[in-house]
């Protein structure tokens, strides 16, 4: 009810611009939760949503080439680094919105208001319930310990989640330490890096590896899969939130910004605001097992079951700043 009122209020605030309208979205998100939210937004406001899905990188490239002719109003990505990059390339614009500033923690939005985090994912360690005791490790740094030699499953360094994790480690410990860490972790791999986060979980469940590094919502997807095997796999592993005693677990956001070329700016802002409403946040959590912006305030049973955790509070633009450096460190360590 409260949500309905809020949306109505928002609609009234933006009313002057909404005679006929539509917004064009470039999005890297391809989740059912988004489909539901887009539909809801259109139902309430009458604003049509057009989308192009693609990888953030390709969409950014496209925005860059289209320049001011671009039809896009909003860019949605699945990590902060890409938003940071889009801002630096001058593809986004600064917007002012009290709603966004109120609803989004400071570290999860751009300090100049070019982009905003909309949902949170945490990169955690999964371990075999049978073979690993959760007291054996507590941090990302522990993954470098030689005792895990031949026991770690982690995906390729082509993947943005790993790049962001390393970027956060560079921020916390500096480049030199980070390089040592990458080299040692590579030594510990049970097999050549490959597959997606799901595959790492399956590797731990099957005994090929004992620990793995994955995003939380993959565990959620497996537990709720319609395939019985997936559920069995999820049962065999447990989640560990690293670095609870110091800086906190590495998190990243999926977020968005209004493009510089936007011709429907106020509708676009309205849309971003809409996504930060509590009901929308719950949809992210429920349908996609992502964390809401207020990490410990959610109504998803599954996420609640994993428990509260302390998150790394570094400003997420650091992930973007250190992304290229992270890729180079991976290369130097020979982590494919």
């Amino acid at each position: 009810m409260l949500n309905t009122i809020l949306i109505l209020v928002l609609t009234i605030i933006h009313f002057q611009n909404i005679l006929y309208s539509e917004i064009n979205i470039y999005t890297h998100r391809h989740y059912d939760s988004d489909k539901i939210l887009f539909q809801k937004f259109t139902d309430f406001t009458g604003i049509d949503i057009n989308i192009i899905k693609g990888s953030a990188d390709q969409l950014i490239q496209r925005l860059e080439n289209e320049g001011m002719n671009s039809p896009a109003d909003i860019l949605l990505t699945v990590d902060a680094g890409r938003l940071y990059r889009a801002k630096n390339k001058g593809l986004l614009q600064s917007i002012s919105s009290d709603v966004l500033i109120r609803n989004i923690p400071e570290s999860m939005r751009d300090k100049d208001n070019y982009w905003f985090g909309l949902s949170v994912r945490a990169r955690v360690i999964v371990y075999s319930k049978e073979r690993v005791n959760n007291r054996e490790l507590s941090s990302y740094e522990d993954l470098a310990n030689p005792k895990w030699k031949g026991r770690l499953a982690i995906r390729s360094s082509n993947n943005i989640y790993n790049q962001s994790l390393l970027a956060s480690i560079i921020t916390a410990n500096g480049s030199d330490e980070a390089l040592k860490w990458v080299k040692s972790v590579r030594e510990n791999m049970a097999r050549k890096p490959r597959g997606n986060d799901r595959d790492q979980i399956r590797a731990v469940a099957s005994g090929i590896a004992d620990i793995g590094v994955v995003n939380t919502y993959y565990v959620g997807l497996l537990e709720n899969s319609s395939n019985g095997n997936d559920v069995k796999v999820a049962e065999k592993v447990a989640i560990l939130f690293p670095n609870q005693n110091d800086r906190g677990t590495h998190i990243n956001v999926s977020g968005g910004g209004v493009t510089k070329s936007s011709k429907n700016k106020s509708e676009a802002i309205f849309f971003l605001e809409f996504l930060t409403l509590e009901s929308s946040q719950n949809t992210f959590a429920k349908n996609n097992y992502e964390y809401p912006l207020r990490l410990n305030k959610n109504n998803s049973d599954l996420i609640s079951k994993w428990g509260n955790f302390k998150s790394d509070k570094i400003h997420l633009s650091k992930l973007g700043e250190n992304n290229a450096e992270a890729v180079k460190l991976f290369d130097k360590a020979g982590w494919e």
């Binding site: 990888s55 990188d57 490239q61 082509n158 790049q163 992304n323 290229a324 890729v327 180079k328």
Partner: peptide
């Protein structure tokens, strides 16, 4: 793709 996207270097 890695240089294009990972290193942001077309």
């Amino acid at each position: 793709f890695r240089s294009w996207f990972g290193m942001n270097d077309l």
